[in-house]
Design a protein around this nucleic acid. Sequence first.
RNA 1: GCCAGCGUGGCUCAAUGGCAGAGCACCUGAUUUGUAAUCAGGCGGUUGUGGGUUCGAUUCCCACCGCUGGCUCCA
Length: 612
Amino acid sequence: MLASGSSRLYFSLPYKTMGEEKTTPVRAPAKDGPFPLSTLRHSVSHLMASAIGRLFPGVRFGFGPAIEHGFYYDFDLPRPLEEADLEKIEREMRKIAKASPQLTCVEVTRGEAKARLLRKGQSYKVEAIDLIPEGEKITFWGHSDWEDLCEGPHVDRLDREFHFKLLSIAGAYWRGDEKRPMLQRIYGTAFWTKAELDAHLVWLEEIKARDHRKLGTELDLFSYHQEAGAGFVFWHPNLATVRREIERFWWDEHERRGYQPVYTPHVSRETLFEVSGHLANYADMMYAPMEIDSMPYRVKPMNCPGHILIYKNRGRSYRELPLRMAELGTVYRYERSGVLHGMLRVRGFTQDDSHIFCTSEQLADEIAGVLDLVLLVVKTFGFEYTAYLATRPKDKSIGSDEIWTRAIASLRQGAAKVGMPLELDEGGGAFYGPKIDFKMKDALGREWQLSTVQCDFNLPERFDLHFTDSDGQAKRPIMLHRAVLGAFERFIGVLIEHFGGRFPLWCAPKQVALVPIREEHAPYLRTLAERLNAQNFRVEAMLDAGHMNKKIKDAQHAQIPFMLVAGEREAADGTVAVRRRGTREQIVMPFDAFLSGISKLRSTRALGLELE
RNA sequence: GCCAGCGUGGCUCAAUGGCAGAGCACCUGAUUUGUAAUCAGGCGGUUGUGGGUUCGAUUCCCACCGCUGGCUCCA
C-alpha cells in the first residue's frame, strides 16, 4: 500500500580488497526512471494483482508494497499457487499493461471506500481502511477494470518501458500475525531497464552459487543429519580448520585486551535460571528439564549466569575492575522448526561471549574497547557495517531514567572514541539496558546481524553482585554483555558466502597444493611439503600417480589459495611455478621467495593473495 | 509452529503402478603427461521412516522425520 518516497541505494559492492579473486559482477545501483524505482515496483505489484484478479475470480487482496529489491502482493486464493502459475500471471500482466495502460486515482470518503470494498467482498481491504488514520485522504488507484485501496503514488501509464519478473511464492500471515489467516504471497522485481533486471537476476544466481549450504557440500565443510536432529551442525575437518584459526585469532586479540578465559558447564540446576530470570522470561527458548538426583537441571541457553557465578565466588575489589571474562560458550536454544536455516539459524551454537563487570565510570572506555575489537574484525574479514544504538523500550523495562541516560551516553562516548557513527534504533533496547547492534554487509551487499554490545542493569541486581570500592563501601557493578562474531555457526556461515568459499590464506582449510608434472618430480615436491609443514602451513600434496591437469582442476575446485607446480626445470633450480587461486597465471619464483611471501600473507591476515 | 513444495547410491540428476539408471566421486589395472577432467573395468540403492490401498508401491493415500521458499521469532 505504501510506496516509500524515493528509491534507496540498492546495492553496493565492497569488494576492493579481493584483487583478482573478484567474481561478483560489479553493479551500479539501480536507477530511477521517469518515476522512482519504488513507485514503479508498487505499480507492478498492482499490475500483478489485477492479473490475479482476472485469473482467479473470487480472490481477496491483502497488501502489496514495494520492498528493498522488488515487491510482493498477498492474496487469499481458492487454490494453492504453483511455480507454473507465475508465467501465466506474467503473461496476463503484459496483456493488461498493453490493453489498458492508463492509471486512475479517485478520492473517496471513508464510508464510500468501505461500501465499495464490501461490495466486492474484499474483507481484508475493508479491515485495511481502519488502519488509515482519521483525517487522511482515502484513495483508490486502478487501471482497466481493477482498482485497489491505495495511497499511491504510482506511475502514470503501464505502457512505459519497464521490465519485471515474478520470482517466488510463499505463505505469509495476514498482517504478519500468526493467529490470522495464511495468505499466499508472490514476490517479484521490476526495473526501468532490461540491463538492470538482467543484472539483478545474475546477482540472484550468484547468491545461489554462494549459498553456504551448497558450498558446504561441495567443499566438504559441514553437514547436518536427520538422525542427529534438526538444527545441529557437524563441522568437518575443512571447516573446523577455518574455525580453529579464527578462534586462535580471537583468543590472541582477547588476551591482548585483558580478557580472562573461563569455561562453564553446559548443564546447571534449574534454580540458577530462576535467579537469572531466564525461566520467567526465556523459557520458550529453553529445553525441557532433565532430572539428576531427582532435581531438575537445564541445558544453558546463555552463558551469563555461569560467568556471574564465577564473579560471585568471592569478594571483588574495585582494583579488579574492569573484569573481563571470555568464553567460547556453547548454548542450546529451542528454535521453531520452520526457522532453521543451514548454519545461520541453528539450535546449538557457540557464542564468542564475554561479560565485562565494571563501574559506570569505566563504562565508556569498556565500550570503546569492544567497539575497537568489532572494527578489527570488520577490517580483518572485509565487511562493511552499520552500527545501531538501541535505546529504552517504551513498554516494559527496568532501571531508573538516570542510569539509562548515563548508559546511553556511555555508549555514545565509546563510539565517539573510536570514531564510529551510530544510527538510532529508538526503543530497540533490551528491557534490561541499551545496546549497540551491528549489521555487517557481506560481499554481496546483504546485511547480517552479528556483533552486539549490551548494557545490563538487571542481572547485577538479581544476583546481588557487588565489589568493595576504594572507600570501603560495597557497590554494584554494571555488566556488559558482548559478542563480536556473534556465534561461530552464523559467523562462519556468513563468511562462507562472503568469500564464496575462497577463504583468505590464513584461515583457508588447505593453503598450498603441490602438483608434480610427472610422478618422478614428486620427491622434489615432497621436500617442499616438508618445509611448508615445518612452518605450519596446511599442504595438499598431490603426489600420487595421476595426471597433472586433473590435479590442477581438483585444486582449483577445492579453492586452495596457491598451487605449486614443478617439473624438471623447477627441481633443477629450486623454483616453483606458482598459480594463484582463480587465475591461470604461472609465476616461476624461488621456493624461498614463495615461502616468505605466503608467510607475510599469513601473518598479516591478508584478504588478497598478492605475493610481494 | 504456520502455508506451499520436496526427499531415488557420497554428490548432481534420470525412470516407471510391473527386474531402479547415468555422470561425477570411490576402488583396481593400464597410462607418465608443462598448467582445468587419460582410458578400461569394478564397487555402491530395502528409493527418508512407519503404516495403508493394491496381485504388485520407489510411484497412490496417511502419519512421522528431515530439507527448501516464505511468514512469525532470533546469534
